[in-house]
Simulated assay, not measured.
Amino acid sequence: MTNTMKNSEDVATIGFSIVAYAGDARSDLVEALRCAKNGNFDEARRLVKEAEKSINLAHNAQTKMLTKEANGENVTLSFIMAHGQDTLMTTMLLKDQMDTILDLYERVFVLENR
C-alpha cells in the first residue's frame, strides 16, 4: 500500500468519525429542542450535555487531522472530510445557541402557565 493510499484511508476514517460524532450531537440537540418545546427542560439540558460529549469526540478527531498536517504529513482533503467539517461547525453553532434557546422556551413556558 502506498503512503498516499494510507493517508487517504486515514483521512476518510477521521472524516467518518467527525461526521458520526457531530451527527450524534446534532441529533441530541434537535431532540433537546423538542423536549424544551414540550416543557421538559431537565431532559433538554441532559441532552445538551450528551451533545457536548459527542462534539468533544468530533473535535478530538479533527485535532488528529490537524496534528498530521502540522507534523508535515501531506493530508489529502476529501468530500467526507469537508462534510465532517461542515457538520461539526454547524452543530457547534447550534450548541452555542442552545442555552439561549432553552432559556427562552422556559420563559415562554412559565409565562404561558401563570
Results as ranks from 00 to 15, higher is better:
41 F>E: 00
69 E>N: 07
19 V>T: 05
58 A>K: 02
21 Y>D: 02
114 R>K: 11
46 R>T: 12
45 R>C: 04
93 L>I: 08
101 I>Y: 06
85 Q>A: 10
1 M>F: 08
111 L>V: 13
42 D>F: 13
114 R>C: 02
98 M>E: 05
72 G>W: 14
91 T>H: 08
83 H>A: 03
33 L>F: 11
36 A>D: 03
11 V>A: 04
34 R>C: 02
63 T>D: 09
97 Q>P: 00
88 L>H: 03
62 Q>G: 01
64 K>L: 08
1 M>T: 12
3 N>G: 04
55 I>T: 00
48 V>C: 10
80 I>Y: 11
103 D>E: 12
49 K>L: 01
100 T>A: 12
11 V>E: 00
16 F>A: 09
94 L>N: 01
67 T>K: 15
21 Y>V: 00
110 V>G: 00
53 K>M: 01
43 E>W: 08
33 L>E: 15
60 N>Y: 05
102 L>Q: 04
19 V>H: 07
58 A>R: 06
99 D>I: 05
19 V>P: 01
35 C>M: 07
106 E>L: 11
39 G>A: 00
63 T>I: 15
3 N>H: 13
80 I>C: 09
28 D>W: 12
73 E>P: 05
86 D>G: 14
4 T>V: 12
52 E>I: 03
41 F>W: 02
90 T>N: 07
97 Q>I: 06
30 V>R: 10
78 S>P: 00
1 M>G: 13
90 T>A: 07
45 R>K: 14
3 N>K: 11
